[in-house]
Write a protein that binds this DNA or RNA. Structure first.
Lengths: 211, 211
DNA sequence: ATTTGCATTAACAAAATTGTTAATTACATA
DNA sequence: TATGTAATTAACAATTTTGTTAATGCAAAT
């Protein structure tokens, strides 16, 4: 029926939210145009103000959802405590990588908007902390136990998570820059990112292994 | 004499460029205001158009300079071929890290603006490639020789560089997000980044070492 | 001293962008 | 069917933002 990507439903409020997500994610708050959102949603731009009052309020709806999604993705990726440590971490890297691959615009969007307006972030902070603190502690405990058994190197769980997220996220963020520089390597996008995934797993596993 | 940060010289063109750099780096092209640039530079905004015609042309001056700087920083960091391989790479990581630490806004700026307008990047691409290709080849050659001697693990030089740049850049990009989540760890900013630097070196050295 | 050319300003203008409002339509329910 | 509420539109308005222009200043060369 509808061959276009943007399926307009009978729910204009949802259509606007959907169009806003695309506009804000790709252009950021400053670059986004409410008129463009309305047009993409197939409504007059007065409707946008009718449902969401202001650009800022509409934006906040999107940002909050994406912040929650980002936090949950980390939790979902590493929250498999039944596995042994190394398997748990390897599995976590893969899940987290796959999530970023499925949402490649998300990290840049969040990083930018938090940087531009840190105060927007303040309300969400506590929620995310509550979500991620238990993960941090359970992971740290496992790491400490494993290190005590001399199975792996001792490491701060937070540093390890930053390592993993750095490796998983950066290639997606920087892809438009490195692609023209590494033409052949990145020619097949799927293959390049499959390689990156393996490289990240290898790098982190080696970070933890006893030498 | 002048206790303010923005030293206005007798050269208004330079003052505008300096103010434009600060505005564009912190807000991006879409968020930057030419009136704010003119005000920060202490000139009427007509002067901005007199010297640079359009916002776009002024922006391009800044972007080109920053792209060149970013490319040169990688070259300068790893272009010390007299050292043995592991020392060369460790030294490169440190130099590159220090450059990012001294220019923490740069990666986000470049990543964003290239993503928003890839066509702006086309002219610079070839310059950067010419700059970085010799580095890539000399590094690959050393890596291959070292691996042939069974001193280190075999690895693609481009993948290694992406690993290093990912680790070095991401903590700076994401700092506003992780700081509120990891309050105590990041309380002393200097100390946190000193730790990150050591962590990155450790991670990459282990990536290369024979097990 | 006059001319010439660049630098500078104030005022203006055009377009874009966000937001409002009053009138109209659709729709459910009494 | 009448009525009340929500949805929708077109027109308007305010502000912001980029860019132009014509007049003026200023300093060096003729």
């Amino acid at each position: 029926m509808d061959t276009t990507k943007k399926r307009h439903t009978d729910n204009k409020e949802a259509d606007i939210l959907h169009a806003a997500e695309r506009e804000f994610l790709s252009k950021g708050y400053a670059g986004a145009r409410t008129t463009a959102i309305a047009e993409a949603a197939g409504v007059t731009h007065a409707m946008l103000h009718y449902y969401f009052r202001t650009k800022e309020q509409l934006f906040k709806r999107i940002l909050d959802e994406k912040l929650r999604l980002m936090g949950q993705s980390v939790l979902a990726a590493f929250g498999q405590p039944e596995l042994p440590l190394m398997a748990r971490i390897k599995d976590g890297i893969e899940r987290h990588f796959d999530f970023i691959a499925a949402n490649p615009e998300l990290p840049r969007f969040i990083v930018n908007e938090i940087f531009a307006h840190p105060e927007r972030y303040e309300l969400m902070q506590e929620n995310i902390r509550v979500l991620l603190n238990p993960l941090q502690y359970s992971l740290q405990q496992e790491l400490d136990e494993s290190a005590a058994r001399n199975d792996t190197e001792p490491i701060d769980a937070r540093m390890l998570l930053i390592d993993i997220i750095s490796l998983n996220v950066f290639a997606f963020i920087a892809f438009p820059i490195i692609q023209p520089l590494l033409g052949d390597l990145t020619a097949d996008r799927e293959h390049f990112f499959a390689q990156r995934k393996q490289e990240n797993i290898e790098t982190i596993m080696r970070r933890l292994k006893k030498l």
